[in-house]
């Protein structure tokens, strides 16, 4: 039975996957993420034993190993939630824009959050995590609206190419303002630079706690718009014909995505390409139904960011490479592969 179903699914490339196959993949993904999270706690410049891990999770910091684990725990949790947010946001954005190249990094949303935060640090003495969160979310939202508005001008609406170019141009523009503001200010350039690289190294429970409400709302809004995104995927005319209020759906779903990216960016800095790569991989495994795709993208995104963090600690031992750098180096080739595979006419 299962086998026949799988073959059926293979026959139709983008068709429905049987529920059992999807459930299987979902289970595998959750298991892999759990494994990666465990690895993230265990691997580091200091080796720890299982007993230390268990003791540290229980709250004990009696020896160095347990203290190391206690430092790695919030970091792992942050990597998980940031990955979840970015993976989910990417899937929502690709659904909202019906655009395979949509990604908070490529569409300039991350840079919008970055510029807002840099302005806040430089001129308004921004320093609290809550402040970062609000400012980043507003910046991300403004950039998202701006890029979408530019990209959808003219004939044919928001084609993937126009959106990607508008995003890249806006990113370049915003980046030069970021440099202009931060370079002459020796006092803040260190803070700005380390934040801009994007990492989960400086994680603490408090910042995760402050980020949680933003994320919770973002996740909820995104997941609830899954069914509507399915109608959008049929095209605007058909969706309208089915009784969908297209503009409202877009706005609500995009709000969810912006909350997610804004919060993730505020705490971990701009991490590129997670939102691009993850939904593509997930679509291959569970199909195009957003009710499956969105949660699955969240889980796989969490896995990708944790894995990148662990990888960053392994390749540069005893130092580390920040997550944002690893994801860019892993993700850019995928972006290029997508661009290469598609026909120019559909770009």
């Amino acid at each position: 039975m299962t086998r026949a179903a799988t073959e059926n699914a293979r026959g139709v490339v983008v068709g429905r996957r049987p529920a059992r196959v999807r459930l299987l993949w979902f289970g595998i993904a959750v298991a892999v993420v759990a494994l990666l999270a465990f690895a993230s706690v265990v691997i580091g410049s200091r080796d720890v034993s299982i007993a230390d891990v268990v003791a540290a999770i229980g709250g004990s910091v009696d020896n160095t190993s347990e203290a190391a684990v206690a430092k790695r725990l919030p970091r792992t949790v942050l990597a998980l939630v940031v990955g979840l947010a970015l993976g989910l946001a990417g899937a929502v954005m690709q659904g909202v824009t019906r655009n395979p190249l949509a990604d908070p990094g490529i569409l300039g949303v991350n840079m919008g959050a970055s510029l807002a935060i840099v302005v806040g640090i430089a001129w308004f003495g921004l320093s609290t995590a809550t402040g970062y969160l609000w400012v980043a979310t507003v910046g991300a939202g403004v950039a998202a609206v701006f890029v979408y508005a530019i990209g959808s001008l003219g004939r044919g609406g928001a084609t993937p190419l126009k959106l990607a170019l508008a995003g890249a141009a806006t990113s370049a523009a915003l980046a030069s303002f970021v440099t202009a503001i931060s370079l002459p200010r020796g006092d803040i350039s260190g803070t700005v630079r380390s934040w801009l690289i994007g990492g989960v190294g400086g994680a603490g429970w408090t910042s995760i706690g402050q980020m949680a409400p933003f994320l919770a709302v973002g996740v909820l809004v995104s997941l609830l718009s899954a069914r509507r995104l399915n109608s959008l995927a049929l095209g605007d005319e058909l969706a309208t014909g089915l009784g969908e209020r297209v503009a409202v759906t877009r706005a609500v779903a995009a709000l969810g995505a912006v909350l997610l990216c804004g919060a993730a960016t505020a705490i971990a800095g701009p991490i590129a390409f997670v939102g691009l790569v993850v939904p593509h991989a997930c679509r291959l495994l569970v199909g195009v139904d957003h009710r499956w795709l969105l949660p699955f993208s969240g889980v796989v995104g969490a896995g990708l960011v944790v894995a990148s963090d662990v990888l960053g600690r392994i390749v540069a031992r005893p130092g580390e490479v920040d997550v944002g750098i690893i994801t860019a180096i892993l993700g850019a080739p995928v972006f290029i592969a997508i661009v290469r595979r598609r026909k120019v006419s559909s770009l």
Partner: peptide, 19 residues
């Protein structure tokens, strides 16, 4: 578009060197 992707990757490398 491919150039934009490559640029993103190289900028990440530059960021690492800077760090």
């Amino acid at each position: 578009l491919i150039g934009i992707g490559i640029a993103a990757m190289l900028e990440a490398a530059t960021q690492y060197v800077l760090s």
